[in-house]
Amino acid sequence: MIAILLAAGQGSRLLPLTLSAPKCLVPVGGRAIIDHQLDACAAAGIERAVVVGGYRIEQVAEHLSARKGGPATELVFNPFWAAASSIGSVWAARDALRGPFALMNGDTLFDPALVAHAVADAQRGVRLVVDRLEAAEEDDMLVEVADGRVRAVSKTLSPERATHRSLGLVMSAGGGAYADALRAVIGADEGIHAFHHAVIDRLAGVDACGAIPVPAGAHWQEIDRPADIARWREEHQPS
Rank of each mutant, 00 (worst) to 15 (best):
I2K: 15
A227N: 06
E58F: 12
G11V: 05
R151F: 01
A61T: 13
A198Y: 09
Y178D: 05
K155M: 14
H117N: 13
A152E: 02
V76Q: 06
I223D: 00
L182S: 01
H219L: 13
G191K: 07
P71A: 11
Q237S: 10
G45A: 01
A102S: 09
Q10H: 06
A3R: 00
A7W: 06
T73W: 01
A102Q: 09
L17H: 12
G191Q: 04
V26D: 02
A40I: 03
M171N: 04
A162S: 07
A184C: 04
S166N: 05
E58V: 09
I200D: 03
S20C: 06
L64S: 11
C41L: 15
I57R: 15
A84G: 07
A136K: 13
G187N: 03
L5W: 03
G69M: 07
A102C: 14
F77Q: 08
D111I: 08
S166Y: 02
S158I: 06
R225T: 14
Q37A: 07
D228R: 13
L133G: 11
Y178T: 10
P159K: 05
R233S: 00
P16A: 03
L114H: 04
S20R: 15
V206D: 12
V143F: 03
G210I: 07
A66E: 11
A8I: 03
A162M: 02
K68T: 15
K23N: 12
L6V: 01
G174A: 07
R67G: 11
G205W: 00
G70D: 01
L142D: 00
V126L: 11
L19E: 14
A8K: 08
S158Q: 14
G210T: 10
V143A: 08
C41E: 09
R231G: 03
D121C: 14
D107N: 05
F195D: 15
I212T: 01
G174Q: 11
P238V: 04
R225C: 12
A40D: 04
A44S: 06
E138M: 14
R94D: 00
R98L: 14
D180G: 02
L103R: 08
V153E: 10
F80C: 13
G174P: 04
H63K: 11
R31I: 00
D139Y: 15
L14W: 02
R56P: 00
G45K: 08
P159W: 10
R98V: 10
L17P: 10
R124M: 06
A118Y: 05
A152M: 02
A82D: 15
N78C: 06
M1P: 13
P213A: 10
S86F: 03
N78E: 09
N78Q: 09
G45D: 02
G174V: 04
V150M: 08
A102I: 15
L128P: 11
H193M: 14
A21Y: 05
H164F: 09
R132D: 04
L19V: 06
V76T: 08
A162V: 00
L5M: 12
A93F: 02
W91N: 05
L142W: 07
L128S: 12
V214I: 02
G106L: 10
I57G: 14
G9M: 11
L19N: 12
A188V: 11
K155C: 09
R233M: 00
G106K: 13
E144Y: 08
A188Q: 10
D131Q: 12
N105F: 00
L97I: 11
G174R: 06
A208E: 07
